[in-house]
């Protein structure tokens, strides 16, 4: 398999004298320009981090769409979207729109989030976990809804004279193949194992939420935290779907 490299921008901005990104507009516009430059250099992807309540890139889809219309070849992705902050159906629409505008080049990293400046910021967004689910469990439940929605599953009953009909409606638009290009960002060995079990791609970062050194083993799904492996299909080395 061909090795790929991409850049990952956090998109910081601050009014420091040395900073070339004094404003949010600087950070956003320069992220698009760097993606264009990266494509010209032969780099394979432009990825953005997503953090909320900080002077860094947040809502990813307008930015991904802008990169998509200014480039033609590179992968465009996130590392990672915090699902605690997302409405999975609205996100399914957003993702499909950005993917279609970019010609099917999204590679979306999603996760249950990382430590952040806001205290339970996702509650303020209106997404407190229902009783009986912890935040991680809620994020995983949203992942299932998101995956179903981008896979074309019906997610709501049709309205038949003010009553729910038998027909189920999928969200629109649908972008073919998007579901094969979703990655779960894992910061722990246990999650990495789960990612392998459900057959998602795995994205690991420089951050591991345990002080354990990376270890290489031959068992694929349990190579927890040590690799970002496209196609972490349990028990195989095969690439999954996307290409």
């Amino acid at each position: 398999m061909r090795k790929r490299i991409g850049f990952l921008s956090f998109g910081h901005w601050q009014r420091a004298e040395w900073s070339q990104t004094r404003t949010a507009q600087d950070a956003l516009a320069q992220t698009v320009e760097l993606a264009v430059a990266a494509e010209e250099l032969g780099v394979d992807g432009a990825f953005v981090r997503v953090h909320h309540f900080a002077r860094q890139l947040s809502a990813p889809f307008p930015l991904l769409a802008a990169i998509g219309v200014r480039t033609s070849r590179i992968e465009i992705g996130t590392g990672v979207i915090d699902l605690r902050y997302e409405n999975p159906l609205y996100m399914a629409e957003d993702a499909a729109v950005a993917d279609l505008l970019g010609g099917g080049r999204l590679q979306l990293g999603v996760s249950r989030g990382s430590p952040e400046p806001a205290y339970r910021g996702f509650d303020a967004f209106g997404y407190a976990a229902p009783d009986g689910l912890d935040d991680a469990g809620f994020a995983r439940a949203k992942l299932e809804i998101f995956m179903a929605a981008i896979s074309g599953a019906g997610v709501v009953h049709a309205d038949v004279g003010g009553l729910p009909g038998a027909a189920m409606l999928p969200v629109q638009p649908q972008s073919p193949g998007l579901a094969e290009r979703i990655w779960w960002g894992s910061g722990s060995r246990d999650t990495a194992k789960w990612v392998g079990e459900i057959g998602l791609n795995m994205m690991s970062s420089t951050l591991l939420l345990e002080d354990t050194r990376f270890r290489s083993t031959s068992c694929r799904p349990s190579r927890s935290g040590s690799s970002a492996t496209r196609g972490a299909t349990p028990g195989t080395n095969a690439s999954r779907g996307s290409r």
Partner: peptide
């Protein structure tokens, strides 16, 4: 082991 390496910039 990874097939994609992301470079933080």
């Amino acid at each position: 082991a990874a097939d994609t390496l992301l470079l933080t910039v």
